[in-house]
């Protein structure tokens, strides 16, 4: 209880954190069409986690942010990224084997300036999602671990 911030900050955080996470996933999903990508979108989504930790304290977000699950998501993202790099090994490592193939994310892009089609890009959207999951989970783990660590340091300093 004592780690929480005031009622105003808690109310605004409760209203806004979902929108921040959704915006982060939007930046990740549209990485091959608009500025941004996996790293940027993951950092935006992780900033919502940081907001929650700052507002409610690391005891208050215990049920919402679990370090084990975030760690699992991080490893999954990295494995997905490396796996899709290896799938292109028929030509080279990191070969974009899904581009212009007609399947998933396989439409050809219109050459020139155009609004873009979400179903293009080959492996690039998948790698964006993988890196985005990795970054948001990694930054979440860093935030949670360091908030727990800072509390421990304060306890040692006071004793």
């Amino acid at each position: 209880m004592k780690n929480e911030m005031s009622r105003i900050v808690r109310t605004v955080t409760t209203l806004i954190y979902g929108f921040i996470i959704v915006y982060g996933f939007y930046v990740i999903a549209h990485g091959h069409l608009t500025p941004g990508g996996g790293f940027q979108g993951g950092a935006i989504a992780a900033s919502a986690f940081a907001l929650l930790v700052v507002t409610y304290g690391d005891q208050g977000v215990k049920d919402f942010l679990k370090k084990d699950i975030l760690s699992l998501v991080e490893s999954t993202g990295l494995v997905l990224f490396i796996a899709f790099a290896f799938f292109g090994l028929g030509v080279t490592f990191f070969y974009n084997f899904m581009a212009n193939s007609g399947g998933l994310f396989g439409n050809s892009a219109i050459i020139g300036i155009n609004p873009g089609d979400l179903n293009t890009g080959g492996t690039i959207p998948i790698m964006n999602i993988a890196v985005g999951l990795e970054v948001l989970a990694a930054l979440g783990v860093i935030i949670l671990t360091m908030s727990a660590g800072s509390k421990n340091t304060k306890k040692k300093e006071n004793s």
């Binding site: 091959h32 069409l33 990508g37 581009a99 050809s108 155009n114 873009g116 293009t120 890009g121």
Partner: peptide, 9 residues
Amino acid sequence: TGANNVVTT
């Protein structure tokens, strides 16, 4: 690559 964002490609 079929992607519009050249930086991401």
